[in-house]
Design a binder for these strands. Sequence first.
DNA 1: CAGAAATCCACATACGTATTCAAACTATGC
DNA 2: GCATAGTTTGAATACGTATGTGGATTTCTG
Lengths: 341, 341
Amino acid sequence: MAGKATSFDIAQLAGVSQPTVSRALRGSPTVSEQTRLRIEAIAQQLNYKVDKNASNLRLQETRTLALLFFEEPSPDDNGINPFFLSMLGSLTRTCAQRGYDLLISFQQLSSNWHVDYEDSRKADGIILLGYGDYELYRAKLEQLVEQGTHFVRWGFAQEGQPGTTIGCDNFRGGVDAARHLLQHGRRKIAFLGDASSHYPEFQDRYRGSCEAQGGEGIIANPKLQIDALNAQDAGYDAAIQLIDGGEPFDAIFAASDTIAIGAMRALRERGLDVPGDVAVIGFDDIPAASLTHPPLTTIQQDYRQAGEALVDGVLKQIRNESVPTAVLPARLIIRKSCGSH
Amino acid sequence: MAGKATSFDIAQLAGVSQPTVSRALRGSPTVSEQTRLRIEAIAQQLNYKVDKNASNLRLQETRTLALLFFEEPSPDDNGINPFFLSMLGSLTRTCAQRGYDLLISFQQLSSNWHVDYEDSRKADGIILLGYGDYELYRAKLEQLVEQGTHFVRWGFAQEGQPGTTIGCDNFRGGVDAARHLLQHGRRKIAFLGDASSHYPEFQDRYRGSCEAQGGEGIIANPKLQIDALNAQDAGYDAAIQLIDGGEPFDAIFAASDTIAIGAMRALRERGLDVPGDVAVIGFDDIPAASLTHPPLTTIQQDYRQAGEALVDGVLKQIRNESVPTAVLPARLIIRKSCGSH
DNA sequence: CAGAAATCCACATACGTATTCAAACTATGC
DNA sequence: GCATAGTTTGAATACGTATGTGGATTTCTG
């Protein structure tokens, strides 16, 4: 046998035709028990596997989903956003359970990620995962919708967006974070993270924080909001800027754990105690959050639930069922960085 | 236009035959500049993408690699080995650079991961990534070799193994780790990690450690070697066992950072200071290693280089070039957990 | 200006599978 | 013993692309 075995090879050995082999292996009831067993035995023996390309071509489906990470090229190249990495595990597991393969691709935000995977029939649907300037990809999302591509995006969810989005309740998470700080007597809460509409997740978290402060009669001081992208170095820089800015503060709400970790490094360097001088709360609950000193109190996004929701969302779209934009709850995880209890 | 555009649609619009379209888009020199431009314009306009399934079927290649994680089902389900996660970034990036897609799959060690991806032509080659009981998968590796599957494994490298393996120099890393501890005056070095032949990476690290101690005239005390799998809880349990065992020790060499992190938690709980009472050194240099308290001194495996070596290794195999088993250097990263300097 | 070379393209076909349709065969009932 | 229904199989074909081969047209050469 030169190359791999085909259904013709099996047919010949079994003394039947190729279509019968195909039918037998797919469990069609029109083929007799006896021949089916014979065919299966031979297939097993030849280590035969259906050629996915031929099969997909014929069936016009791939039973594969594509996962597209897109990020702005990060200056510090410590790799991928840890939260997304956690999500990845959940996504692959869910895909496997549903009988789908997962194709992974990392893309620059600026590239043409939006016109590829489903068009070239590599995948039946796409999961979009990425932070970055929303304005930069809104047009691409619209194009995906127009093309009828099956996709679900992870991110901030809002009416009127192109396509389906699943995200966590960033606003509510922001409220919870600020409330926790307020309960610990903090009144001058700084926010580290871009709060412009270009980064709507961060913006929502910030808005939630302001809302919670408003509930206590506090008007958030805009000078205590420092832009930072989602990277440790950015968190460090922002914290330094905050400290050097001279505006008094007794708490930091970081838009992500990664930022929080960078900020805590800056605080330590400047001799500020956490949580004594400054309480710190993060967002995401990445694995590293429990390892910082003190361990980081944070708002958890449930990556497990998220992964399932994303996969099932795309699968629904593929079956032409409608998928509503969904918001998953976020949960406060209390550790030590905001004080005890 | 009902479905997606095909090369026939373009041919019709351009007033040429389908083969000409195919040739034009692949840049064949036998089609005139003029018609090529015309065809390209139409293709662009129709948002045409080559159907990968049809193309692969014809070309008998997929330009896709499959990445197979296999792990023993872990009791604590905190997801995937962080080191592999780091590697993943490097792998996807390298694949993209080489023009390949990456298909990801997580497998139980016990499943039939060894007969699938390449046989069903989903991928041209396979990258194997996994810790676990080597005896359990040696037979499967042999089967892969026998089938002529193109694959490269990450792990311990040794003559006479089935297939090609790329790994880091675990033995040398073990030597360096132990030497570092010895240089800091430690003489009673414990090893946390399974040192049996079932976990050859860990075993090599342990052997390196013993060798280095032997160089100083020290015979490693076997009572100071405690089995532990690669998980935080396992590290914690092993450290507790070590402490309660009563055998005196002044240093811990953990077979992985994950184990080290668990061990440091145990030490802290039992009131032992790191590095005052016990120096701790890990292995891998996962992202979390710099966040522990004190920051973890460790042996770095260069996941970047590793990822490239793995991808290029498989690609070579696909081109029927021979790929020697390779050993990449490991590097000592000094932080604070073994004392200053 | 005839013949040869060069250029450009179309026809036919193959990749391996899955399905439609029709045919063959078996069993049943009158 | 023959028609009928039921069961099982095979022949033909389509999915969309890529390429070997040969034909048509143009360009070059002596």
